[in-house]
Design a protein around this nucleic acid. Structure first.
Lengths: 108, 108
DNA sequence: TTCAATACATAGGAATGCTAGGTATAACTT
DNA sequence: AAGTTATACCTAGCATTCCTATGTATTGAA
Protein backbone atom coordinates (compact mmCIF):
# COMPACT_ATOMS: atom_id res chain seq x y z
CA UNK A 1 0.00 0.00 0.00
CA UNK A 2 1.96 2.99 -1.26
CA UNK A 3 1.40 6.43 0.15
CA UNK A 4 0.38 7.80 -3.25
CA UNK A 5 -2.86 5.92 -2.81
CA UNK A 6 -4.00 8.30 -0.13
CA UNK A 7 -3.98 11.31 -2.44
CA UNK A 8 -7.41 12.72 -2.94
CA UNK A 9 -8.85 10.75 -0.02
CA UNK A 10 -7.15 12.35 2.95
CA UNK A 11 -9.66 15.16 3.23
CA UNK A 12 -12.55 12.73 3.34
CA UNK A 13 -10.82 10.76 6.08
CA UNK A 14 -10.16 13.84 8.17
CA UNK A 15 -13.70 15.07 7.79
CA UNK A 16 -15.06 11.65 8.70
CA UNK A 17 -12.94 11.37 11.83
CA UNK A 18 -14.01 14.84 12.91
CA UNK A 19 -17.58 14.00 12.00
CA UNK A 20 -17.61 11.58 14.89
CA UNK A 21 -16.11 13.97 17.45
CA UNK A 22 -14.04 17.13 17.74
CA UNK A 23 -10.35 16.34 18.18
CA UNK A 24 -6.97 18.04 18.12
CA UNK A 25 -4.37 17.25 15.48
CA UNK A 26 -2.28 14.79 17.41
CA UNK A 27 -5.38 12.91 18.54
CA UNK A 28 -6.63 12.83 14.97
CA UNK A 29 -3.49 11.01 13.93
CA UNK A 30 -3.99 8.48 16.69
CA UNK A 31 -7.67 8.07 15.86
CA UNK A 32 -6.82 7.40 12.22
CA UNK A 33 -4.24 4.82 13.23
CA UNK A 34 -6.65 3.10 15.60
CA UNK A 35 -9.87 3.26 13.62
CA UNK A 36 -8.25 2.22 10.36
CA UNK A 37 -7.17 -1.00 11.99
CA UNK A 38 -3.54 0.04 11.77
CA UNK A 39 -3.70 0.53 8.01
CA UNK A 40 -2.90 4.22 8.17
CA UNK A 41 -0.19 5.79 10.25
CA UNK A 42 0.02 9.30 8.90
CA UNK A 43 2.97 11.59 9.55
CA UNK A 44 2.35 14.98 11.14
CA UNK A 45 3.68 16.69 8.04
CA UNK A 46 0.75 15.21 6.19
CA UNK A 47 -2.00 15.91 8.65
CA UNK A 48 -1.26 19.39 9.97
CA UNK A 49 -1.08 21.10 6.59
CA UNK A 50 -4.23 19.28 5.52
CA UNK A 51 -6.08 20.56 8.57
CA UNK A 52 -4.97 24.11 7.78
CA UNK A 53 -6.13 23.64 4.21
CA UNK A 54 -9.55 22.44 5.31
CA UNK A 55 -9.93 25.26 7.77
CA UNK A 56 -8.91 27.74 5.08
CA UNK A 57 -11.58 26.21 2.88
CA UNK A 58 -14.17 26.76 5.59
CA UNK A 59 -14.83 23.07 6.20
CA UNK A 60 -13.25 23.06 9.66
CA UNK A 61 -13.06 25.49 12.54
CA UNK A 62 -10.49 25.39 15.32
CA UNK A 63 -9.94 26.82 18.76
CA UNK A 64 -7.11 26.55 21.26
CA UNK A 65 -7.68 24.59 24.43
CA UNK A 66 -5.50 24.52 27.54
CA UNK A 67 -6.09 21.17 29.23
CA UNK A 68 -5.59 20.63 32.97
CA UNK A 69 -2.28 18.98 32.28
CA UNK A 70 -0.22 19.02 29.14
CA UNK A 71 0.41 21.71 26.58
CA UNK A 72 -2.06 23.71 24.52
CA UNK A 73 -3.99 21.95 21.81
CA UNK A 74 -5.77 23.12 18.73
CA UNK A 75 -9.14 21.41 18.57
CA UNK A 76 -10.88 21.05 15.22
CA UNK A 77 -14.55 20.56 14.51
CA UNK A 78 -16.67 20.38 11.39
CA UNK A 79 -18.45 23.47 10.15
CA UNK A 80 -21.84 23.16 8.49
CA UNK A 81 -20.16 23.29 5.14
CA UNK A 82 -17.72 20.66 6.35
CA UNK A 83 -20.58 18.38 7.25
CA UNK A 84 -22.07 18.86 3.83
CA UNK A 85 -18.74 18.17 2.22
CA UNK A 86 -18.40 14.98 4.23
CA UNK A 87 -21.66 13.69 2.83
CA UNK A 88 -20.52 14.43 -0.71
CA UNK A 89 -17.15 12.85 -0.15
CA UNK A 90 -18.59 9.70 1.29
CA UNK A 91 -20.68 9.43 -1.83
CA UNK A 92 -17.64 10.24 -3.96
CA UNK A 93 -15.70 7.46 -2.30
CA UNK A 94 -18.49 4.97 -2.93
CA UNK A 95 -18.61 5.72 -6.60
CA UNK A 96 -14.85 5.73 -6.89
CA UNK A 97 -14.45 2.43 -5.07
CA UNK A 98 -17.21 0.88 -7.11
CA UNK A 99 -15.47 1.88 -10.33
CA UNK A 100 -12.11 0.57 -9.19
CA UNK A 101 -13.59 -2.70 -8.05
CA UNK A 102 -15.29 -3.29 -11.34
CA UNK A 103 -11.95 -2.87 -13.01
CA UNK A 104 -9.80 -4.78 -10.54
CA UNK A 105 -12.43 -7.20 -9.42
CA UNK A 106 -12.46 -9.61 -12.30
CA UNK A 107 -9.17 -11.52 -12.16
CA UNK A 108 -8.14 -12.47 -15.68
CA UNK B 1 -15.50 12.25 -7.70
CA UNK B 2 -12.42 14.40 -8.21
CA UNK B 3 -9.57 13.30 -10.39
CA UNK B 4 -7.14 13.52 -7.50
CA UNK B 5 -8.71 10.34 -6.21
CA UNK B 6 -7.20 8.32 -9.00
CA UNK B 7 -3.65 9.09 -7.98
CA UNK B 8 -1.80 5.99 -6.95
CA UNK B 9 -4.45 3.69 -8.39
CA UNK B 10 -4.09 4.24 -12.10
CA UNK B 11 -1.27 1.76 -12.49
CA UNK B 12 -3.31 -0.98 -10.84
CA UNK B 13 -6.22 -0.23 -13.17
CA UNK B 14 -4.05 -0.36 -16.26
CA UNK B 15 -2.42 -3.60 -15.18
CA UNK B 16 -5.81 -5.12 -14.42
CA UNK B 17 -7.29 -4.17 -17.78
CA UNK B 18 -4.25 -5.60 -19.55
CA UNK B 19 -4.39 -8.64 -17.32
CA UNK B 20 -7.62 -9.60 -19.07
CA UNK B 21 -6.31 -9.08 -22.62
CA UNK B 22 -3.64 -7.27 -24.60
CA UNK B 23 -4.85 -3.92 -25.89
CA UNK B 24 -3.55 -0.76 -27.49
CA UNK B 25 -3.69 2.58 -25.72
CA UNK B 26 -6.83 3.96 -27.27
CA UNK B 27 -8.69 0.70 -26.67
CA UNK B 28 -7.49 0.72 -23.07
CA UNK B 29 -9.18 4.06 -22.55
CA UNK B 30 -12.41 2.71 -23.99
CA UNK B 31 -12.17 -0.46 -21.94
CA UNK B 32 -11.73 1.56 -18.76
CA UNK B 33 -14.72 3.70 -19.61
CA UNK B 34 -16.88 0.69 -20.37
CA UNK B 35 -15.81 -1.70 -17.63
CA UNK B 36 -15.89 0.93 -14.91
CA UNK B 37 -19.55 1.48 -15.64
CA UNK B 38 -18.83 4.95 -16.94
CA UNK B 39 -17.17 6.04 -13.73
CA UNK B 40 -13.81 6.65 -15.36
CA UNK B 41 -13.24 8.50 -18.60
CA UNK B 42 -9.51 9.07 -18.65
CA UNK B 43 -7.85 11.60 -20.94
CA UNK B 44 -5.10 10.43 -23.27
CA UNK B 45 -2.62 12.68 -21.52
CA UNK B 46 -3.15 10.56 -18.44
CA UNK B 47 -3.01 7.13 -19.98
CA UNK B 48 -0.21 7.33 -22.54
CA UNK B 49 2.44 8.62 -20.16
CA UNK B 50 1.35 6.02 -17.61
CA UNK B 51 1.79 3.23 -20.16
CA UNK B 52 5.26 4.50 -20.97
CA UNK B 53 6.07 4.58 -17.29
CA UNK B 54 4.91 1.02 -16.76
CA UNK B 55 6.84 -0.20 -19.79
CA UNK B 56 9.92 1.62 -18.55
CA UNK B 57 9.44 -0.14 -15.22
CA UNK B 58 9.35 -3.50 -16.97
CA UNK B 59 5.74 -4.25 -16.08
CA UNK B 60 4.46 -3.93 -19.64
CA UNK B 61 5.83 -4.76 -23.07
CA UNK B 62 4.59 -3.27 -26.34
CA UNK B 63 4.82 -3.92 -30.04
CA UNK B 64 3.49 -2.08 -33.06
CA UNK B 65 0.69 -3.65 -35.03
CA UNK B 66 -0.57 -2.62 -38.47
CA UNK B 67 -4.23 -3.70 -38.66
CA UNK B 68 -5.96 -4.46 -41.97
CA UNK B 69 -7.61 -1.09 -41.85
CA UNK B 70 -6.77 1.91 -39.73
CA UNK B 71 -3.49 3.32 -38.55
CA UNK B 72 -0.71 1.65 -36.61
CA UNK B 73 -1.34 0.76 -33.00
CA UNK B 74 0.93 0.09 -30.10
CA UNK B 75 -0.31 -3.00 -28.32
CA UNK B 76 0.58 -3.51 -24.67
CA UNK B 77 0.70 -6.74 -22.70
CA UNK B 78 1.72 -7.69 -19.19
CA UNK B 79 5.19 -9.00 -18.55
CA UNK B 80 5.76 -11.63 -15.88
CA UNK B 81 6.79 -8.92 -13.51
CA UNK B 82 3.70 -7.00 -14.47
CA UNK B 83 1.52 -9.94 -13.60
CA UNK B 84 3.23 -10.21 -10.24
CA UNK B 85 2.77 -6.52 -9.66
CA UNK B 86 -0.92 -6.81 -10.49
CA UNK B 87 -1.38 -9.39 -7.76
CA UNK B 88 0.35 -7.13 -5.25
CA UNK B 89 -1.64 -4.11 -6.31
CA UNK B 90 -4.94 -5.91 -6.06
CA UNK B 91 -3.98 -6.80 -2.53
CA UNK B 92 -2.82 -3.25 -1.89
CA UNK B 93 -6.16 -1.93 -3.06
CA UNK B 94 -8.03 -4.31 -0.76
CA UNK B 95 -6.14 -3.19 2.27
CA UNK B 96 -6.40 0.44 1.32
CA UNK B 97 -10.13 0.25 0.68
CA UNK B 98 -10.66 -1.64 3.90
CA UNK B 99 -8.86 1.06 5.84
CA UNK B 100 -10.78 3.87 4.20
CA UNK B 101 -14.09 2.16 4.75
CA UNK B 102 -13.42 1.65 8.41
CA UNK B 103 -12.81 5.36 8.68
CA UNK B 104 -15.60 6.59 6.45
CA UNK B 105 -17.99 3.80 7.12
CA UNK B 106 -19.31 4.78 10.49
CA UNK B 107 -21.49 7.88 9.99
CA UNK B 108 -21.38 10.04 13.10
C1' DT C 1 -12.98 18.41 -49.09
C1' DT C 2 -14.12 19.15 -44.82
C1' DC C 3 -15.16 17.03 -40.67
C1' DA C 4 -15.04 13.55 -37.17
C1' DA C 5 -13.08 9.50 -35.18
C1' DT C 6 -9.15 6.88 -34.39
C1' DA C 7 -4.43 6.74 -32.54
C1' DC C 8 -0.21 8.30 -30.74
C1' DA C 9 2.89 11.74 -28.20
C1' DT C 10 4.72 15.32 -24.91
C1' DA C 11 5.65 19.81 -22.41
C1' DG C 12 4.23 22.26 -18.63
C1' DG C 13 1.10 23.14 -14.75
C1' DA C 14 -1.47 22.17 -10.46
C1' DA C 15 -2.17 19.68 -6.52
C1' DT C 16 -1.01 16.62 -2.93
C1' DG C 17 1.37 13.99 0.62
C1' DC C 18 5.94 13.21 2.62
C1' DT C 19 10.68 14.14 4.42
C1' DA C 20 13.21 16.61 7.38
C1' DG C 21 13.78 19.92 10.29
C1' DG C 22 12.35 23.01 14.03
C1' DT C 23 9.91 24.71 18.66
C1' DA C 24 7.75 23.87 23.16
C1' DT C 25 5.76 21.51 27.22
C1' DA C 26 5.09 17.70 30.34
C1' DA C 27 6.15 13.30 32.39
C1' DC C 28 9.10 9.74 33.47
C1' DT C 29 13.99 7.73 34.49
C1' DT C 30 18.23 7.57 36.28
C1' DA D 1 18.99 17.52 38.47
C1' DA D 2 19.54 15.91 34.03
C1' DG D 3 18.32 13.35 30.28
C1' DT D 4 15.03 10.99 27.71
C1' DT D 5 10.56 10.10 25.91
C1' DA D 6 5.93 11.39 24.67
C1' DT D 7 2.91 14.89 23.56
C1' DA D 8 1.78 18.70 20.43
C1' DC D 9 2.37 22.03 17.08
C1' DC D 10 4.51 24.09 12.64
C1' DT D 11 6.62 24.72 7.82
C1' DA D 12 9.82 24.73 3.62
C1' DG D 13 10.87 22.18 -0.12
C1' DC D 14 10.72 17.80 -2.62
C1' DA D 15 8.86 14.02 -5.46
C1' DT D 16 5.20 12.20 -7.73
C1' DT D 17 1.15 12.12 -10.14
C1' DC D 18 -2.57 13.20 -13.23
C1' DC D 19 -4.42 16.68 -16.32
C1' DT D 20 -4.62 20.51 -19.83
C1' DA D 21 -3.34 21.86 -24.05
C1' DT D 22 -1.36 21.12 -28.12
C1' DG D 23 0.56 18.74 -31.96
C1' DT D 24 0.94 14.96 -35.53
C1' DA D 25 -0.97 11.34 -38.59
C1' DT D 26 -4.40 8.18 -40.67
C1' DT D 27 -8.95 6.77 -42.03
C1' DG D 28 -13.75 7.04 -43.27
C1' DA D 29 -17.99 9.67 -43.77
C1' DA D 30 -20.81 13.83 -45.15
Amino acid sequence: MTSEMLKGHLDAILLAVLGAEALHGYAIIEAIRTRSGGHFDLPEGTVYPALHRLEQAGLLASHWVQPDSGRKRRVYQLTDRGRGSLVERRDGWSRFAEGVERLLGAPA
